[in-house]
Write a protein that binds this DNA or RNA. Structure first.
Lengths: 364, 364
DNA sequence: CTGAAAGCGCTTACAG
DNA sequence: CTGAAAGCGCTTACAG
């Protein structure tokens, strides 16, 4: 590997001069700078090595993104992709690389190596100048570790932490508006589907206590927004079935959807994410229910595919969310300034919702 | 930041002992190791810093992925996503982070900073232990730079380089089989659509010379495979229109599709990628052509959405491709062993192809 | 504007 | 099994 010293020797200048040529152009004459670059090119020197620069206190030139559970999930969920795209678009402006950090799965036994010591994930050990955390549960060990490391952090969606820049939505109000839409159409027998309230592997009917203690903040806020609005219209919380998928796989979604449709007599469902709502629609259709005549479905996110499927949903600007998170992080890295942003949502009515059919309760 | 020395002092051992505790467990007694970890935890030490370790010659613990043009594109193309997913799935096994490197766009003036010096992108300067290059054109400066750096590299799809591990398909044969399918159905007036043959901004009708000199290896191989098979059935290359989109945006695809349908009287089109084929189908439908009755369309990739759209296509295992590329890279990093893999493809007939309608040439 | 020197945190021969 | 020492490539006060 060609180093600065070699370039300096060949160019007849000090090693520091070469460093300045790359990182502090104002400290060397432009003639000398040109000469140094010429020699560097001849020798095949491609610029300061990241490790050396970083060790000395400089920037690495990369930001990290911590995503839920696994990188595989990060690359298959479409909303997540939009977020990453937004981050990438902003990142390019500042010439950074995006590093995706797998966040170790938490579990009853926590995440230890074979010797019982808690491993820091690769990205927490200096690979990045800052980290964007996307939708991790409250109390997640990986979040604590990154905060403890003291590098700049921006949280998207969850968890909300004191003094940490945050980008998100008013999930609760947006969810309330979704519920209001169904109420205005005349629905009274409404079910709720949610992907995951806490990373503990539980699924099925979610109790009021489980909902109020849910560590997945976004899921909790949405479900509470739904329930709050229904309650305001005189529908008791206890009469509204809330079914949790317990994971993010399509099979999890399908199972929860099936449970809701089989066990409860509802004319409409509120689904806390579009990917899950699309799966619910497909399950309902398979069961011979026609949408929206026999079942209304409302999603959340306006994810790719929602418009095509005619899904009524809460639209949120995911790409913009990523872009803003990147901006906030870059600002925190460069200036230490901290800022948070709440983005607006828009309720979009499509063809998956309609007035309930006139029929007797329990007619199915 | 807590360092090894501080942990060592607090634990009453040498700094080297702490290093060994983390990186060479066999060099310290398990009692001492436990004691060191205990002290580290108390002090909030999260393991060796990546910069220091990397500088000294160790592993960074991250692999890079170089993608076409821009990170934004990387996060919007569905086939690319599948590849990344495959890489990520394999990466998790080895506890690596995936770093996406924006590859600087090449152009007539090459890629220079304001002072005219060629910048190495962040990821080429030591941020990663190895790099997976995905589908870059031959002669791309970023590829040369990465190879020159001497770090382990695996190329997916393009370019093919002597002595560099490679994962790809037999694109030419697979394309030939796609053409053969149309010939067997009885088509004789066939057009070809391709996304990009070279990153020079040109679009529209591609001449034989442009095709044979195309630097985008995969696009070239597929087009040549089509033409070769058609020629073998007595259809002169010069009579087959080849339209190039010149970019990867849906608008580019739509424009090229429109040009082919407007200017040439074809009963079928061979499209060198599914994303473009889906766009071509949509353009054809907008023009009132019914598929497959009036126009047969064959794609390539079996990308997400192809099955739903009923697109007849060449299926390739994109996720597997990523997984294998990651395996090869990890092996190259760990052992220096180099290996290449050609993956099989499968031709899948769906509902976008049929026998041509009986009609006079030029009846439209 | 230029150069000599210190030191960032770490790993690994090497000597005990 | 343990420890003292060298040095990876770099940036940045500091002195000229």
């Amino acid at each position: 590997m060609v180093t600065m010293s070699e370039v300096a020797k060949a160019a007849g200048v000090s090693q520091a001069a070469v460093s300045y040529a790359y990182s502090r152009p104002s400290k060397v004459s432009s003639g000398q700078r040109a000469r140094i670059f010429e020699v560097a090119e001849e020798l095949g020197y491609h610029g300061p090595d990241a490790a050396g620069r970083s060790l000395r206190g400089g920037r690495v030139g990369a930001v990290g993104v911590m995503v839920m559970d696994s990188l595989g999930y990060a690359f298959s969920d479409p909303s997540n992709m939009q977020l990453l795209r937004g981050i990438a678009e902003e990142g390019e402006l500042a010439d950074v690389a995006v590093t995706l950090l797998p966040s170790p799965r938490p579990g009853p036994s926590d995440n230890k190596d074979p010797l019982g010591h808690r491993q820091a994930s690769a990205g927490m050990r200096g690979l990045v100048d800052g980290v964007i955390i996307h939708n991790l549960p409250q109390g997640h060990a990986a979040v604590d570790a990154v905060i403890a490391r003291g590098i700049p952090v921006v949280v998207v969606d969850s968890p909300k932490l004191r003094g940490v820049p945050y980008v998100g939505l008013d999930d609760r109000s947006a969810a309330a508006s979704a519920a209001q839409h169904l109420l205005a159409l005349g629905h009274r027998r409404i079910g709720i589907l949610v992907d995951r309230l806490a990373p503990d592997g539980r699924s099925g009917v979610a109790s009021p206590s489980r909902i109020s203690h849910a560590s997945d903040r976004v899921a909790r806020a949405r479900v509470q927004g739904y329930l709050q609005q229904l309650e305001a219209s005189g529908i008791a919380r206890s009469s509204v079935p809330v079914i949790e998928a317990g994971g993010f796989q399509l099979e999890d979604y399908a199972k929860a959807s099936g449970q809701l449709l089989d066990d409860y007599d509802v004319t409409a469902i509120l689904v806390a994410s579009d990917v899950m709502a699309l799966e619910a629609m497909s399950v309902a259709t398979q069961r011979g229910l026609s949408i929206p005549a026999e079942l209304s479905v409302v999603g959340f996110d306006d994810a790719p595919g929602a418009a095509e499927a005619g899904l009524t949903t809460v639209s949120q600007p995911m790409v913009e969310k990523g872009r803003i998170a990147a901006q906030l992080l870059l600002k925190a890295i460069a200036t230490g300034e901290l800022g948070s942003v709440l983005l607006p949502t828009e309720f979009i009515v499509r063809s998956s919702t309609a007035r309930p059919q006139k029929r007797q309760s329990g007619s199915r």
